[in-house]
């Protein structure tokens, strides 16, 4: 049992409160502070390495691009610039919140979606979708290997593989349809949907200090911005 894992209800509460609270906020500094806290939560949940990747490849380029474009449109016109920066900051917060909500360790995927109210076929579809990426990558690699062994790809370079995309799609989708037909028969015979309702899964304990702190943070953010919104009006 990992005490650093967020309980599904905590994830949901943080996502909803975070989005609403941020939407209500009109001050860049508190939003920036909230974003810093979210990055810490993301680092605790997913590890420092993922945070660095997320920052360098996703968040920073997105912020820089949006900032540059907004600067280009509005130059450094004070109030308009602050309004556009607010837009960029809010987008950053929403993106981080979604990352926190949806980056779920594979062993907790089933537990999380069940707690979020998904049952039977919707649960089966969601859990399968989380694992499908690896399936598709393996299939693509098998098709590329087959084409390479038959001499259709001369060199194992990136561009050579890229040129295989049109030839990859049809066998990939045919393979997927065959697998879907076989799996559906197997699942039907085994009564998989009913079995999912009774299977034991890895639970995440919600009553620990970490989850309580996150819940307090989410509620505080919502209440703080709600009070400011009421005072503004």
């Amino acid at each position: 049992m990992d005490r650093r894992q967020l309980h599904p209800y905590t994830r949901l509460l943080l996502l909803v409160s975070g989005i609403i609270g941020t939407a209500w906020s009109q001050a860049p500094l508190p939003i920036a502070g909230f974003e810093m806290i979210l990055l810490v939560i993301l680092a605790v949940n997913s590890g420092i390495r993922l945070i660095v990747i997320f920052l360098m490849i996703v968040l920073l380029p997105m912020m820089v691009m949006l900032t540059v474009f907004h600067l280009f449109v509005h130059s450094l016109n004070g109030p308009v610039f602050i309004a556009q920066m607010l837009t960029v900051l809010k987008l950053t917060v929403y993106t981080t919140l979604i990352q926190i909500a949806l980056i779920i360790p594979l062993q907790y995927v089933h537990f999380t979606f069940r707690k979020w109210g998904f049952r039977k076929d919707s649960l089966l579809i969601l859990v399968s979708s989380y694992f499908v990426w690896m399936d598709v990558v393996k299939r693509s690699e098998r098709i590329l290997l087959a084409r390479f062994s038959q001499g259709y790809i001369e060199k194992r370079t990136f561009m050579a593989k890229l040129r295989q995309i049109p030839f990859l799609l049809v066998p990939l989708i045919i393979g997927i349809m065959r697998t879907a037909a076989e799996r559906s028969q197997s699942w039907d015979e085994k009564g998989l949907v009913e079995r999912l309702e009774t299977v034991r899964f890895s639970p995440v304990r919600g009553m620990n200090a970490y989850n309580c702190i996150i819940v307090l943070l989410a509620i505080s953010w919502l209440v703080y911005n709600g009070v400011l919104l009421i005072n503004r009006h």
Binding site: D121, L124, I125, S128, S129, F131, V132, W133, D135, V136, V137, S140, L169, L172, I173, I176, M177, T179, A180, A181, R183, S184, Q185, W187, D188, E189, G191, L192, V193
Partner: peptide, 28 residues
């Protein structure tokens, strides 16, 4: 276990295909 009906089979076919179709979107 009861024998699968046509509707049951199509339901499972849909459930099996949807995640794989998600994979198509993601991959491309």
């Amino acid at each position: 276990q009861t024998a699968p009906t046509k509707n049951t089979s199509r339901t499972y076919l849909r459930m099996a295909f949807i995640p794989l179709a998600v994979g198509i979107n993601l991959g491309i």
